[in-house]
Design a protein around this nucleic acid. Sequence first.
DNA 1: ATTCTATTGTTCGTTTATGTTCTTTTTTAT
DNA 2: ATAAAAAAGAACATAAACGAACAATAGAAT
Lengths: 260, 260
Amino acid sequence: MNLAPRHTQLLDDVRTRGPQTIEALAERFGVTLQTVRRDVQRLAEAGLLSRFHGGVRLPGSTTENIAYRQRQAMQSDAKRAIARAIAQRVPNGCSLILNIGTTIEAVGHELLRHRGLRVITNNLHIAALLSTNPDCEVIVAGGLVRGADQGIVGEATVDFMRQFKVDIGLIGISGIESDGTLRDFDYREVKVARTIVEQSREVWLAADHSKFNRPAMVELARLDEIDVVFTDAPPPPPFGELMAQGHVECVVADRSDDPA
Amino acid sequence: MNLAPRHTQLLDDVRTRGPQTIEALAERFGVTLQTVRRDVQRLAEAGLLSRFHGGVRLPGSTTENIAYRQRQAMQSDAKRAIARAIAQRVPNGCSLILNIGTTIEAVGHELLRHRGLRVITNNLHIAALLSTNPDCEVIVAGGLVRGADQGIVGEATVDFMRQFKVDIGLIGISGIESDGTLRDFDYREVKVARTIVEQSREVWLAADHSKFNRPAMVELARLDEIDVVFTDAPPPPPFGELMAQGHVECVVADRSDDPA
DNA sequence: ATTCTATTGTTCGTTTATGTTCTTTTTTAT
DNA sequence: ATAAAAAAGAACATAAACGAACAATAGAAT
């Protein structure tokens, strides 16, 4: 039994737009709720979708890390806005490295409709997500999987990353201090991020406004090594000044510009 | 089979205009519905088109054989039984390599309560799952992520795996032929499995009964390279004989022994 | 010309997809 | 804990699509 156009479209919708309610899908396709339920049941049986009461989503790995998911759900408008601004500037067909962090994951979502990307990542969630886009080549870095957020870190990861040289390296961060240092907590993660900076022709940083002046232990890089910073609100002093001095472009994402 | 002019045109139409209903095609060519159905049947048999109720579309690989995926998702009893039998024989504190396949994923589930394991895998699902066990060190192999099943394959994966030497290597398989060869479909996957065999002190094979005598293209290994085979029903001839000759232990999992 | 074969059209019983209605289950609020 | 509301599932009805069998037609081979 093969799939009708509606089924493939349904899958596509969930892939690109995220979880959908049964009702929304019924309306979208102009069919009954019961029909959507039947569609969804078959797709779920085939392992292509995951059902929950009221709707469907992509089939995540079976036992999810709940705490982590919750934190991710907290990914508010700010992260989505930043992610959209970043995705907009990623040209089709380019090569990227994406690292750990919920903001970077949001970027992964926004890249689902891009074409011809080659993505290298040390984030299991991003790898799983983007690999469902048939027009995207995903390479996951090898290494130790950190339980808290399924990030991949460690020596082996660094070695693996060194094999590649990409157009754009995209990193998140725990804190930016007023002396212009970027810092994080886990030193193994920092080593990986350091490598990403080295292996990328251009380095982009995603950091929402809460990261400015937030202290963290391990130094990762200096602000002037970054090419573009994406954030969601104008940075407080002295960061505007620092960026100007270091020839760092700063993109402030507009939270309101929502695509239909 | 030579294609009549109408057939090539029909194909062309679907290619340029996307999915078409039988009725639209009938009208376009000025023939009856039944004739179009016959055309379409032949083209679908040849793999050039994919049918759905009411029409045809191009054979997209993504969501192609739902029936097959369903069937695969179904066999869960057998897989769980096999997985339990395997997990029972995995001692706490040992090192493992787990590769791709739904049966192996089931093993991952059963290993969640083990302690002190060190697991290397090229399966994203298993990596995400086991990393939630704080008492389990998970290393994911680097490499290209295959969209269909989130398996990690390719040269880089092989290189990565070679860094390790483990107590037990656990592999799944697409088919075991009666000459004692283990085979699979994707040759990149075979290369990885091959490496796993080489890097493991002991090799275990998980194969439900449907795998015996099932043909597949690429040779992976020979039965006598395996130390233990886990299955869910006594293997048909000549496999019992073959295993005895190769000093392969065969464990038949009891489907009924369910732990409360 | 006649026979044979391949293709198409026709008819009809069978299957499939969808909508409708009603019951059961799950979630939410009190 | 209980009641109300929402969603899911089962059962049935119906219309559309499918497939098989047979008839008609046209071209090819003898």
